[in-house]
Design a protein around this nucleic acid. Structure first.
Lengths: 190, 190, 190, 190
DNA sequence: CATGAATGAGGGTTCATTCAT
DNA sequence: AATGAATGAACCCTCATTCAT
């Protein structure tokens, strides 16, 4: 009971942070606005997160975690490498379009914020499987033997761009998912 | 005449701003640090730029302008569409790698900062030619008829990603320029 | 409960403001001097008054309110119009002489400061009774039927002047109260 | 010629100062606005007035001087004490109504600004004659033997109030001049 | 734990005054 | 003498963080 309440409050703060960060960015967002949005007192925020930085890190991990859950659901059962890749691609984009606040916050953290390396690593852990299929795809000869890191970065940037693009061209979400992957796949396979 | 507003000083402030913005981001950079870095008094900054925002805009335009000069130099004389695209691709990446501060500031402005639409448009003007070759490439049948905007965004994101990637993998700049373009070109042409 | 906003602290800030405003005027007084005088931190002032303007308004209302209490005490029980007028006259001057800082601040606000009309009206409310006796005095034929507004302004300016005069001629406070009223009364009655 | 130009510039600065001071008060008026209004460079102001304070003093003396000229013109030829008093009264009010900026600045200086005593005295010099008729009026038995200083202050405050009153009731300037003096005269004479 | 008032360092901007031209 | 860019001390206000209740 008491435990629950605590978890609720921590969650509420993170949710509030996501909402206001997405709208205003980190540097423009006073912690007091976050606590107010979360419905807690100013001081309470600091019993859950010692500093604003810690909160940002927690937000990062929370969002990354959710995203991982989304991407990895049903992932293992897919038979082919193509289907796996395609699954990641489309689920990522759909997730980004469906959760624009979370997506925006993630992008902001990536580009604006110096996350400590260990936290960054922690956030990437759940995506190890993706790395793995990249490796397998290359090993199988399906994909050119470009450096795996570069392929990962490529997929990341291209899918993110596609999410952003759809945000301003909302008519054709499935169309852009399709052609985006088509381009990527054609570019990368032998 | 009184002391003339010296172009050097305006330039010095912009350079200082680029340096500290790249390192700390806009919101983390006091104007006083910029003026100190530029070697002028706190107040002097405001005789050249009425507000911090104005300075940021000026930085944006300055960097975009330099980049445009770089990309467009010799561009018109290139015979084929392929060579033109390739020229843009490699020159952009080389520029980004050679001017990491400028590149970082540009990325930050893109992702963090609400540039007023007119300033944004002003900054994009010099790049109209790129749009044009995209259009021609499609018209000629060389490139699939994907939406031009999407292709532009794709090239933008992929080249930016490549710059960032090289920053952390500095050994093989030319290798990454090559494979990056290879992937892009293969993905996009018929 | 957290630390409660303490009425004492709000009062202390207003008192400090009166003291320094009286001595230096509004525009010459940094809020930091007020908070220092009040014995609170710089930021604390702004938890009680959102802006310097708000503080000035609060000072205005506080002083006007005190003055009203002073003038109106026992006012209703006075039998004749003459006695009522005389009561206002002498009590106002005595108050002004006894509280030179408050008096000076009130004068400054009147002459230097653009109080928003609603706040001004709020400050005048308690003095409605004075207006009333002016009207009655005229209706009864005791006082010439000059415009009530003009008579009010006359009484206001003449009493204020008398306070200031006494400040530089402190020997004869009662003498000046007497002759001041004598002149006023003689000038105004039939 | 050169002399004239200089005098022109000094005059221009004082005029500009009057205009902007009247509108915005001393503390709200940057010297740069004054110089701009005067059509001179920022620095030029300081070759004529070493500090902003000096300028304010100069403005005070200029306005007081003009007023004295106005009030004293034709004054000596008036036959009776009554007429002299009445002349001062009405000319002062007419001057104030006709030159609202100058009047406002004078009031502001009186109430807001700590003029050094010697400058204040310098400003009052031209009004010695007024003092004189007050004295004579008392000596002749025409006016009650109230302290001359008080009578001076009374006349000053009442006439100033009347100017301000007329500013907000512009219809009946002559009416208010008349009743104002009527009240004053009745109050003060035997 | 929760609360929210208290704190004070910091930030963008203004402006009287100086001084190189 | 005139100019206006340069200077830097202030100023109002914000906000992450602390702490008394």
């Amino acid at each position: 009971m008491a435990r629950e309440k605590i978890a609720d409050k921590e969650k509420a703060i993170i949710e509030a942070a996501i909402a206001v960060f997405a709208e205003r960015g980190f540097w423009n967002t006073p912690t007091s606005l976050i606590s107010k949005t979360a419905g807690v007192a100013d001081g309470t925020l600091f019993t859950y997160f010692a500093t604003k930085d810690d909160l940002i890190h927690a937000v990062y991990l929370a969002v990354k975690g959710e995203l991982a859950d989304e991407l990895m659901a049903g992932f293992d059962t897919l038979p082919t490498l193509y289907e796996k890749m395609r699954h990641i691609w489309s689920h990522f984009i759909e997730w980004g379009v469906a959760h624009p606040e979370r997506f925006r916050v993630m992008q902001q953290i990536k580009s604006n914020y110096a996350i400590s390396p260990d936290v960054a690593a922690q956030g990437l852990e759940p995506f190890a499987a993706i790395d793995q299929i990249a490796r397998e795809s290359i090993a199988s000869g399906l994909v050119h033997d470009y450096p795996v890191d570069y392929l990962g970065a490529l997929m990341d940037s291209q899918s993110s761009m596609t999410v952003e693009f759809i945000t301003t061209h909302p008519e054709g979400i499935h169309y852009y998912i399709d052609i985006g992957f088509e381009i990527l796949w054609k570019g990368v396979t032998r």
